[in-house]
Nucleic acid binder design. Structure first.
Lengths: 162, 162
DNA sequence: CATAATGGTTACAAATATACAACTATTACA
DNA sequence: TGTAATAGTTGTATATTTGTAACCATTATG
């Protein structure tokens, strides 16, 4: 047996490492099937659907996405009228990205379609298990936001927090 | 307000969609810094560290990874002596991939290094919150395995479950 | 004012992941 | 036996992501 007593943190890491591809798996097909947005754009829509307005750098920080990549994806989202650029009033370097009404609606629709597809899978769970899952995912979400939600620099040459 | 009363499933989808980039973020840097393995290979090591032996197709199914991609990644892992190919005794088409002792040890080490890096972030949580997180991630993991852990075909032309 | 730092863009290379097609070997089955 | 289905490989094209560097505009700071 190679089993060693794990610390709580190691248990968390273990679970998260296992969880990641599992969540990927549950989304990947639907994401590709149900939208013409690529994963990166969808993640941006995800944070924007929560925060409504974020600067380019904020988006990069929240998603650990290099700034040049954010620029490219936002360009596409603007073409699709999902988001819009808004100049910052106090700091003229900053460009705020604001989710449009169309963006909100479309993203809502996408989520509902994905939910519909996942219903089949998730209905293998009992009502109690499903409630537990909703609660547990909510807890994980909130606690990870505390731990990893804060700005910590996005991986880009000129933007290191060194 | 665009808020609409969500079903339990929609809440789960909402949380999972938000969780995915957050988990990505918490791992990405460490994964790239601490190992010479790419993310895909690391995910394969993850499932193999649990199941010890899986066929090529099993791996593809569990990770929703196209079979040709699995082949490439396994080739690299074999070069590194992390896994080995073992011919199946009952069905000579099947090639079983077995994690080696070195693979188990190395993966354990990688996880501990990642844990060490994450400790700093996770220590912003109280002891109670950390325990909650461990429990919640465990629950999510187990319930998602029930829902999405089953074979459902990996995205490859010749392997559709149609 | 001079200089450093920040926010953002552009361009390009490299790594990684996905999709598709063709192919061999083996097994399942009518 | 003949045919279809499965498991896996190989190759190639494409999509996506990451990494670097250079660059401009603006702000912060000495």
């Amino acid at each position: 047996m190679t089993e060693i007593k794990q610390t709580t943190i190691e248990t968390v890491v273990d679970n998260l490492m296992y969880l990641h591809p599992l969540i990927s798996k549950s989304f990947s097909k639907q994401m590709r099937a149900k939208t013409n947005l690529n994963p990166g754009s969808l993640f941006i829509m995800g944070v924007l659907s929560v925060y409504k307005t974020l600067s380019m750098s904020d988006i990069g920080r929240k998603l650990s996405m290099p700034k040049p990549h954010v620029t490219v994806l936002i360009d596409k989202l603007i073409e699709e009228k999902m988001v819009e650029r808004i100049a910052d009033l106090t700091d003229r370097r900053i460009i705020n990205i604001h989710i449009t009404e169309k963006g909100i609606t479309q993203f809502q629709t996408i989520k509902q379609e994905i939910s519909e597809e996942m219903r089949q899978q998730l209905q293998q769970l009992t009502k109690e298990q499903l409630t537990t899952l909703a609660t547990a995912t909510q807890q994980v979400r909130e606690l990870l936001i505390i731990s990893f939600g804060k700005p910590s620099g996005c991986p880009d040459t000129k933007n290191q927090t060194s």
